[in-house]
Write a protein that binds this DNA or RNA. Structure first.
Lengths: 144, 144
DNA sequence: TCTTGTTAGTTACATTTTCAACTAATACCA
DNA sequence: TGGTATTAGTTGAAAATGTAACTAACAAGA
């Protein structure tokens, strides 16, 4: 059925990454979406605060590679859901420090655990060496 | 600055894939978006028709793993831009065969070439063996 | 041939994302 | 001190996506 052998889209890295990302994100989405009513950006924000501690929205933008409007809306949403709180910084009232509430911490711990299991499930088809290789390569591609 | 060492989001496969996909798709997006005014789904449709020959929208859904509404809209858009034409199948008037116009074929050839160069550029940091390994692993993750 | 079920594709609507413009606070510098 | 430039974050409108309901054509059995 192959017509033009010039270049196969199935070997195009951005396409392979897009398909893989779609394939793997759907399963995890159910966890944070159905259970906590979160959006992808909200989950990322939660994880960054949980893992790396309090930081400003700007820090989240840089670390999580998210646009400021996305972060701004995620902050509003997670604040409304009582997962995070913001504390104004008196020395520079332009930004506010974001941190998890007790409730947010619980959600983070639960989702973090779930992510770990889900990751293990996804990776079970790969040997430990392969797992390390795959993730190392992806970090290089993502410039992490 | 690390607070909770339980599980690092940077090692979570869906997250790594999402970042890598975003990182690599942006560069290519400029090509099909700015030059041809195409959307991601439209580019995928074009590539599938160019590479694998004429097929119905349903075939595209299955092969390209796209939802039928996305494909339906991409078909309408690419038809309006004169990149593809549809031919009704008399034996079953429910579906129509999609194929590239001369204009669409030129766009496909151009973009296919651009994709190849872009892919090479992305992969140049990897040795030939590493390139093969990375893509093989991704195909396994994506269940291709 | 009716009627029930399935399939291909479209349309409508709600949700998300993106983009650009905006406000408010601070920094820099003549 | 005053004026301009930056920076953090918000808001609104437009574009894109996802979901579900819909139409039209065909299939298959009573």
């Amino acid at each position: 059925m192959i017509q033009n052998a010039s270049f196969d889209i199935q070997d195009f890295l951005p396409y392979l990454l897009a398909l893989s990302a779609e394939e793997t994100s759907l399963g995890f989405q159910r966890l944070y979406k159905d259970k906590y009513g979160m959006l992808r950006t909200e989950w990322r924000l939660l994880f960054h605060l949980g893992r790396y501690g309090d930081m400003t929205a700007k820090d989240v933008c840089d670390r999580a590679r998210l646009h400021k409007t996305k972060v701004s809306r995620a902050v509003t949403a997670l604040e409304a859901k009582q997962f995070i709180k913001r504390t104004e910084v008196p020395s520079d009232r332009r930004h506010a420090l974001l941190g998890l509430t007790r409730h947010g911490l619980k959600a983070y711990e639960d989702l973090s655990q779930a992510a770990q299991s889900y990751d293990a499930r996804l990776m079970q088809e790969f040997s430990p060496e392969e797992q390390k290789t795959l993730k190392d390569y992806l970090k290089r591609v993502a410039r992490l």
